[in-house]
């Protein structure tokens, strides 16, 4: 078994500013050793530890999709020590990645089902990974309807805007993009918070429909009653948690909520599972 603390060496291949206020950047990495890419094979919903020698490591959801080859992609919000340093790094710089870590959205169980994705702010990274995965020609027929409610403060804060516009044009995915507010007179999508847009646009919950919800705590708090009203039972509402982490594979004890370790037993849980777990996240 390999040393799970040892990162794979990677090179920054591309950096893109992801939001207008420059608080988020999207990094594309390539593995220095080709065989490491194989070892890093992941599923949508997992995360990695980005490792900057001298600065530390940070858990970040994998934004690229298992169907995209040759690179891995992460979108990082500038927050503290490591993320700020990362924002100052350049294309060509060498650093490390550990992973893939954690569980993933339950793709085996989701096959044949209708999927509702509800995302807010920059917690859209692993949701992007999931959408790209489901829309892949090899996978699209495995799922029923796909609905996406995605909101940000204003149009400039929406991640992956080009892709969102592409998806808008397709007829095999129902996009419900929304912003809290905008001064743009040409804005042709929704205006309003995620919970009311979900209530108005999302499909009803039933035996065959699952909701995947990622966003800031406040969005989750007000989206839950909406989903309940729409008929989603708690075992069909899937969420992803963010706790402070270090090791990322269940040993350092930091991310525990009850008997679950968010890094290893999660980060993906159903609301039903979370109801039986202390709310320490």
């Amino acid at each position: 078994m390999q040393n799970p603390y040892l990162p794979y060496p990677v090179r920054i291949d591309d950096i893109e500013i992801a939001t207008e206020d420059k608080s988020l950047k999207t990094f594309k990495f390539v593995f220095l050793n080709k065989e490491d890419e194989e070892k890093f094979s992941y599923k949508a919903g997992q995360f990695g530890e980005l490792s900057v020698p001298g600065k530390g490591e940070i858990p970040i959801g994998i934004a690229s999709s298992p169907v995209e080859k040759g690179f891995v992609m992460f979108t990082v919000n500038k927050a503290g020590v490591v993320t700020t340093h990362l924002h100052n790094m350049k294309v060509g710089d060498v650093m490390g990645i550990r992973g893939p870590l954690g569980n993933w959205y339950p793709w085996e169980q989701l096959e044949g089902k209708n999927i509702l994705i509800v995302g807010g702010g920059f917690a859209f990274t692993t949701l992007r990974s999931s959408i790209v995965y489901m829309l892949d020609p090899a996978n699209r027929s495995k799922f029923g309807t796909i609905d996406v409610v995605y909101g940000a403060r204003n149009p400039g804060m929406l991640l992956y805007k080009n892709e969102l516009i592409e998806w808008e044009k397709r007829d095999d995915i129902n996009m419900h993009i929304t912003v809290d507010g905008t001064t743009d007179p040409d804005w042709k999508y929704n205006v309003g918070f995620v919970p009311p847009v979900t209530e108005a646009k999302a499909p009803k919950g039933d035996e065959n429909t699952y909701a995947i919800v990622c966003g800031p705590p406040i969005m989750i708090k007000f989206t839950q009653p909406v989903l309940e009203k729409l008929g989603y039972t708690h075992d069909k509402i899937i969420m992803s948690l963010e706790n402070r982490m270090k090791c990322g594979f269940g040993m350092c004890g930091r991310c525990g909520i009850g008997k679950e370790l968010v890094c290893k037993d999660g980060p993906v849980f159903t609301l039903d599972q979370l109801n039986r777990t202390p709310r320490e996240y």
Partner: peptide
């Protein structure tokens, strides 16, 4: 008790995790 932290310590241009 087994909980631990991971830290980088750098002196000049070399360091340890």
């Amino acid at each position: 008790c087994w909980c631990f932290d991971i830290q980088d310590e750098t002196k000049g241009k070399s360091g340890v995790r």
